[in-house]
Computed example of a mutant assay.
Amino acid sequence: MKRKTILSSVLLCISCISIFYSCKQRDDYPSFDDKVEETAPVDPIPDDKQVEAVTRTIMERTDLIKTFLLDSSVTISTGLVRTHVRYVNKLDQRVSLQLLKVDLSSKDIFPAIMSAFDDYLYVSQPIGDMAKYNEPRSGGEILAAINAALSSTVSYIKNGRQINVSTSNIKTKEKTRPFFAIRKDGSPYIGNCVDTTKFTFEPYDLNQFSGLVSGTNWVRYRGYSVLTTSEVVQAVTAIGLSSDKKTMYALVVDGGNTNFSVGIGLNDVAALMGALNTHDAFVLNSGATSVMVQKTLTADPFNPIIWNTVSKPLTAGGSASISGIGFVKRSSIKN
């Protein structure tokens, strides 16, 4: 009996050694020291020999575009044209931008301030969904939209109702913010000023505005470019207005993806808006919230209309915002 026990113990030890040895000999375990080579996604760019007029203007008046890649323009409606431009900048980085040109003199298109869920609460919503909720009371069809403020600490005016304006930093000269507003007569206005001796502060009455959204950084003020020492390059949403207030531009530059679009710096936004002859222009917001959407008809009977994201934010549909600007096709033109 004792011999059997000893023999069993010996066999068990041999078996364990064999199993251990066989494990040591396996070669199908990954080596965590090995570096994994990541292949950049293929981004085919078709040959484009025809340059759109707005792209040519940017190329002729700035040094932003080192190498032109492609562009395309689509007329969304009378008075509303969207141009997509892709290029390589002076640092050999790829950039993609969406630019809306709005002809405010046509009376067919007008800007409207949007809020999350078309309400007055401090909640956020993706811009595509925001356009859907705001369209019924917009006075027409929202054909395109861009993001405005992200933070709930920033104020806005919606349908004449002032939301958080007492803490918005738009009432005092010392803490100025650029803002885009729509007067109650429908005319657009970009207000506040750069707090320097070169520009004088312009007084205004918040009660004259039916809608307002504030931004972050001036890039053009009363015909002058506003430059900065900031070298941050990121996704950006900006707007500009001509001196006669007949032409408005809405710009969304994608960022954060070096294989597609690295983004843009504030001084380059100033150069671009200057090339477009904007009198006043500023950045609404930057980063993951920067997004542009366009109204699109679908074949889905349960969801026949969507506001398709035409820019390429890092998160699908772009991060949610507190407010936005919609570009509305007037339901009827009153003579």
Rank of each mutant, 00 (worst) to 15 (best):
E141Q: 12
K24T: 09
I109W: 05
F201Q: 03
R330L: 04
V219R: 00
I170L: 09
G256R: 04
L276I: 10
K198G: 09
Y249N: 01
F209L: 03
T278H: 04
L11C: 09
A53P: 00
F110W: 05
S15W: 12
D268T: 03
I264R: 02
P136W: 09
A40C: 09
V102A: 05
G240A: 07
S72M: 13
F327I: 10
K158W: 13
S22F: 14
K24M: 14
V74E: 15
Y224R: 04
N147T: 12
S106K: 05
D185N: 11
T216V: 13
L227Y: 15
Y249E: 05
S286L: 13
F302S: 10
P136S: 04
T167A: 10
M273F: 14
K132S: 10
L121W: 15
P111M: 07
T237Y: 09
V36A: 11
M1K: 09
P301V: 03
R82M: 13
P44F: 14
P111Q: 06
I146Y: 07
A299K: 08
L266V: 08
S115R: 06
G223T: 07
K245C: 07
K24I: 12
N159H: 11
T67Y: 14
N134Y: 08
Q162R: 12
V252L: 03
S323M: 11
K49M: 08
I170M: 06
V262P: 00
N134S: 05
A271D: 15
G79D: 03
S210V: 11
R26T: 10
K329R: 09
D48E: 10
L70D: 14
T309E: 11
D63Q: 08
Y224T: 12
Y29D: 06
A281Y: 13
L11N: 01
Y29F: 15
E135C: 02
F20I: 10
E141Y: 11
A288W: 14
F20V: 07
D34G: 00
I58N: 01
G223F: 12
L251C: 02
G274E: 15
S106L: 08
I157S: 02
L276V: 06
I157F: 07
D129W: 13
D92N: 15
F110Q: 03
F302H: 12
L99C: 04
T83A: 03
R56P: 00
A145G: 04
V219M: 04
G240N: 03
Y249D: 04
F20N: 11
Y156N: 08
L12D: 01
M59E: 07
S290D: 07
N164Y: 14
R220W: 12
D195Q: 08
F117L: 13
S290L: 08
T55Q: 05
I113N: 00
A275Q: 05
I14N: 04
T216A: 14
T237I: 05
R161Y: 14
V54C: 01
F209M: 02
T289M: 09
N147L: 04
Q93C: 09
G317I: 04
P301E: 12
Y221F: 15
S8E: 08
Y204R: 01
G211P: 00
V95S: 03
A250K: 02
Y204S: 00
